[in-house]
């Protein structure tokens, strides 16, 4: 079970980076995930440089294969980021989706 305190502290940071546009710096696609991410596999992970130069990692969702490229414009959105146990606090966090 993820510590609820860790989720709480993290969510304050997440608020600041929601709804931000950026470009993909590097990407990969994960086929063999760790336990908390089995539900989402296979999934791409991108490193994005936001307009304010901040760099953020996140999964890329609602994408087509052609969106997986360096330089692609994306925007940060709110999604569930890891599936802990059925008992634990839900971890919401940042993922990215491609912009047209």
């Amino acid at each position: 079970m993820i510590s609820p305190v860790k989720v709480w502290r993290r969510q304050k940071e997440i608020r600041k980076i929601l709804g931000k546009k950026g470009k993909v710096l590097i990407w990969t696609k994960i086929f063999t995930p760790g336990s908390d991410f089995k539900k989402y596999a296979p999934y791409p992970v991108v490193l994005v440089e936001l307009e304010n130069k901040e760099k953020i990692y996140g999964q890329l969702v609602d994408y087509e294969e052609k969106d997986l490229k360096i330089g692609k414009d994306v925007i940060s959105i709110l999604r569930k980021v890891r599936s802990s146990t059925d008992e634990g606090v839900i971890a919401y966090g940042v993922k990215f989706k491609p912009l047209k």
Binding site: K39, K80, Y92
Partner: peptide, 16 residues
């Protein structure tokens, strides 16, 4: 909705 979406994530989108 996608596997990582729920009523809260969707509410955030519509409320934003």
């Amino acid at each position: 909705a996608g596997v990582d979406e729920d009523s809260l994530t969707m509410a955030f989108e519509s409320a934003s």
